[in-house]
């Protein structure tokens, strides 16, 4: 078969949801750093969000499954450590999707700007850590609901 173009591979990858936060895709998250063909092998470079994130192996499996489903059989996944992943690479589309989903998107100021449920701005931090390494727990003092905040790193 004729190998697909790099752009085509990116299009396929753009359909893969994050295993923990399915409203955003791996491409939105900014963790797929490069796609290239080395001969007939499709090399995808992926950078981990947090070094111990248990979703990493699931993410690799999802990428491989997706590409195999599109007929690629020579696939190499490369872990790329540097430059280290930053939430700056997250797309605006992903930020909006996170908030819609109930997770406050990362902010350079180091904390959420408003409650993703009611838009309230009287917020307090409950814990530096949440249900995944990338999130912290906050609470809105206006609607009294707890919510998760995607940490800015």
């Amino acid at each position: 078969m004729t190998p697909p173009s790099v752009d085509q591979v990116w299009e396929w990858l753009e359909t893969i949801p994050d295993p923990e936060i399915p409203v955003i895709t791996l491409v939105d998250l900014g963790i797929i750093r490069d796609v290239a063909f080395h001969g007939e092998t499709c090399v995808v470079s992926v950078t981990p969000t947090y070094s111990g994130c248990p979703a990493t192996s699931m993410i690799n499996m999802d990428i491989e499954t997706c590409l195999r489903d599109h007929g690629l059989d020579r696939i190499e996944l490369k872990q790329q450590l540097s430059p280290a992943w930053t939430t700056d690479w997250m797309s605006d589309k992903a930020r909006a999707a996170l908030e819609e989903y109930g997770i406050a998107p990362p902010q350079p100021a180091g904390g959420p700007t408003r409650c993703p449920h009611c838009g309230g701005t009287h917020l307090e931090k409950l814990s530096q850590f949440g249900s995944t390494p990338c999130k912290a727990q906050w609470r809105c003092k206006d609607c009294l609901e707890p919510f998760e905040y995607f940490k800015c790193i």
Partner: peptide, 17 residues
């Protein structure tokens, strides 16, 4: 619970490192 989650997350980061 929050402390449990925080410690588990810390341990996870350390194992990742």
């Amino acid at each position: 619970l929050e402390e449990d989650i925080a410690l588990a997350n810390t341990a996870l980061d350390l194992i990742g490192q």
